[in-house]
Write a protein that binds this DNA or RNA. Structure first.
Lengths: 341, 341
DNA sequence: GTGAAAGCGCTAACAT
DNA sequence: ATGTTAGCGCTTTCAC
C-alpha cells in the first residue's frame, strides 16, 4: 500500500481545514493567496496526490472509458486505438482495455464489469458481423454512452464512425477498370461483415458504370489472413474465363494472393494487376509494391472518441453517423494501362 | 447518469439491512439460505450492480493495472499487450491504456495520473533505451508494483520479462554460418537499445565460435522501419568486400532490405541469404518467404502480468528476471547450403 | 443470522 | 475567506 497521505494530513500540516485544501486543489477562487501558497507547499512537501477514486465516488464521473476491441492483429483496429487513445488523453480520459479476441461471447460479461467500474462511456472498436447484435443491445438499453467504429446495428440509432467502404470498393475497382481490365476478380472478407458487403457493393457499382457484366465466378472469399488470400487466389487461377486483375479486400489477402501468383509463374502487374485495401506498412515494401486503398484509421479513432465524450457531456446529443473517405495509393502492382482488355 | 439503484435500495426492497445485502454479494457464509435467495432475487429484479468505485474506496484495491506502451505499430509490443490483457482478464484485472507513442516525456505525467487513479500496479511494456531511466525511477521510489517487458534499468533491481536476445542473435547468425557464409552483414536497430546490443552480442559470439573475424564495415544501423532496412541494405551493397548473407534485427528491416536487393538485381537466397527477427505475419508471405527468429511475445505479456499481480499480492516478492527462448523459423530466404564461402 | 455504527477520501452545500 | 455538516456507496467491526 502506498500514498498514505490524505487531504486531512495536508490540512493538518498547513493548519487549515481539509475543505480548504479541497478548494485549493480544485482551484477555487475563494481562497486567500497566502493560504493557497502555504497549502500548495505542503502538498509538494508531503507528495500528496488526490484520490481519483474518492473523487469519482462523489462526482459520479470516472473520466475512464471502456474500449472493446476484437482483433489486435488487425492493422485497422490497432490504428483506431492509437487515434482513440491520443484523443482521450488530450481530454483527460483513460481507456480500459477489453479485448474479446478469444471469445466474443465474453462481451456481456465485459459490459457488466465496465459498468460496475462506472466507466463514463464505451467505445466499441470492432467490426460488426450479422449475428452479434444482441450483446450491444443491452448496453443501449442501459443508456451507457456508446460510440462504435465500423460497427453497425440495423434498425438502431447509434453514433458510428466508419470509412466509406462502398466508395473505397468503387475506387479500387475503377482503378483496375481504367487500366483496361474487364475480367476483374475479387477476394472478399468473410460473409456477414458490413465492410465486406460495402466493398463488394462498390465493386458492383464500378462494373455497372463501366458496362462490365458481373460474374459471380470471379469472386472468392477469404478470412482476411495472408493464408486465405493465398488459397483464394489459387482457386481463382483455376477458373475460366481467366481474370486479368484482382481486387483483394485487404492488403494481407492481397499479399497472400501475390504469393500464389508468383508460385504460379504469373508476373505482376503484367499478367495480373493487384489492388489491396488498408495500406498496411508492408504494402509499400512487398515486391512488387502494392497499390491499395488507404483508410484514415487513426482519425476514425480520434473522431469516435471525441463524439463519445460529447455524448457523455450531453446525453441528449443527436446520434450521428460519420463516414470518412478513402484514398487510392498507386504503386507497382497496378502497372501502366493495357491495350485492349 | 445511470445505475441509480444502490445497495440500500436492494436492502429496502428485500426487507433486510444493507449490510446483509453486502454479505450476500460478497458471498459470505453467514447468511440464511432464505435471505440469500430473496436478496439475489431483488438484485436481479432491480438490475443492481455494485459500484466498484465505492468498493475500491474502502478496500484500497482497484483491480486495475496501468499499461505503459510506446509503440503500437510494433508487432512485438502489440502481441505483448494481447498476452497481458488475456492474463489480466483471467485474474479479474483491467488495464488502463497509456501510449507514449508521441512523446516519451509525457511519462511522468502518466505515472501521476495512474497513481492518482490508484492502479494496483503498472506494466511497463516498452523498450528501454539508454537515456530514459529517470522517468521510471520515480515509480520505483513510490513503491508502485512494477513489472517491465524488454525494459532494463542498469543497477536497479526490478522484475523484467524479456526474450533472450543474445541467444536469438546467435541463433540467427549461426543459421547463416551453417549455410557456409562467412561474409555476414548485419542491420541493427537504433543505438542505445538493449535488444540491439544483445542481438549484436549474439552475432559476435557466433562469429567468434566459428572463427570468423569480426568486420565492423559489415554492420549498418536502421530504426526498425521498412524504409531504414531498405536504405541500410543499399549502403551495405556498396561496400567491399561484399557480403553474402544478411542478418536484419527485425523482420520489417529485413523485408525493406529484400526490396533493395531485388532492385539491385540480387537473387535471394542465391546471391544473398537473409534472416530477420520477430516472425511477423508478413514474414511467411513476402517473396521469397523470410527465415526469421520467432519470439514468444504473447507469453512475455502473460508472464509479466502474472508476476505483476503476484507482486501486488505480496510486495515483498523477490524481484526476478525471466528470459524466454527464441525459435529459428526456416523459410526460403535461407536456401540450401553453399559450397565453399 | 442480522442490524447498527464507523469510516474509506473526497466534494458540496451551508454556515460564519 | 474559511470551517461545519452531510453524504457519495460500500466494507468491516462489533453488538445483539
Amino acid at each position: 500500500m502506498r500514498s498514505y497521505v490524505t487531504i486531512r494530513d495536508v490540512a493538518a500540516a498547513a493548519g487549515v481545514s481539509y475543505q480548504t485544501v479541497s478548494r485549493v486543489i480544485n482551484r477555487r477562487p475563494d481562497v486567500a493567496e497566502e493560504t493557497r501558497r502555504r497549502v500548495w507547499q505542503v502538498i509538494e512537501e508531503l507528495g500528496y496526490q488526490p484520490s481519483a477514486i474518492a473523487r469519482s465516488l462523489v462526482s459520479k464521473r470516472t473520466h475512464t472509458l471502456g474500449l472493446i476491441t476484437a482483433d489486435f492483429s488487425d492493422y485497422f483496429f490497432t490504428q483506431v486505438i492509437v487515434g482513440a487513445e491520443a484523443e482521450a488523453r488530450k481530454q483527460g480520459y483513460f481507456f480500459m482495455l477489453c479485448s474479446t479476441e478469444r471469445n466474443p461471447d465474453d462481451e456481456p460479461e465485459y459490459f457488466r464489469l465496465l459498468t460496475e467500474r462506472q466507466v463514463d462511456g464505451i467505445l466499441f472498436a470492432r467490426p460488426s458481423t450479422e449475428e452479434d447484435s444482441r450483446h450491444i443491445l443491452s448496453l443501449l438499453r442501459a443508456e451507457v454512452p456508446l460510440v462504435t467504429t465500423a460497427y453497425w446495428l440495423p434498425g438502431e440509432k447509434l453514433t458510428v464512425v466508419d470509412v466509406d467502404n462502398v466508395d473505397g470498393g468503387r475506387q479500387a475497382t475503377e482503378c483496375l477498370i481504367e487500366l483496361g481490365h474487364r475480367q476483374i476478380g475479387m477476394i472478399t472478407g468473410p460473409a456477414g461483415w458490413k465492410s465486406v458487403n460495402d466493398r463488394s457493393e462498390g465493386y458492383r457499382l464500378a462494373l455497372e458504370r463501366a458496362g462490365i457484366p458481373f460474374d459471380a465466378s470471379f469472386i472468392e472469399y477469404g478470412d482476411w489472413s495472408y493464408q486465405s488470400g493465398y488459397e483464394a487466389m489459387r482457386r481463382l487461377l483455376q477458373k475460366a474465363p481467366p481474370i486479368t486483375a484482382l481486387f483483394a479486400q485487404n492488403d494481407r489477402m492481397a499479399i497472400g494472393a501475390m504469393r500464389a501468383l508468383s508460385e504460379a509463374g504469373r508476373r505482376i502487374p503484367d499478367d495480373m494487376a493487384v489492388i489491396g485495401y488498408d495500406d498496411i506498412p508492408a504494402a509499400a515494401y512487398c515486391h512488387p509494391s502494392l497499390t491499395t486503398i488507404r483508410q484514415p484509421m487513426q482519425q476514425v479513432g480520434e473522431i469516435a472518441t471525441r463524439l463519445l465524450i460529447e455524448l457523455i457531456n450531453d446525453p441528449a446529443t443527436e446520434r450521428k453517423e460519420v463516414l470518412l473517405k478513402t484514398e487510392l495509393i498507386r504503386r507497382e502492382t497496378c502497372g501502366r494501362a493495357r491495350q485492349g482488355g
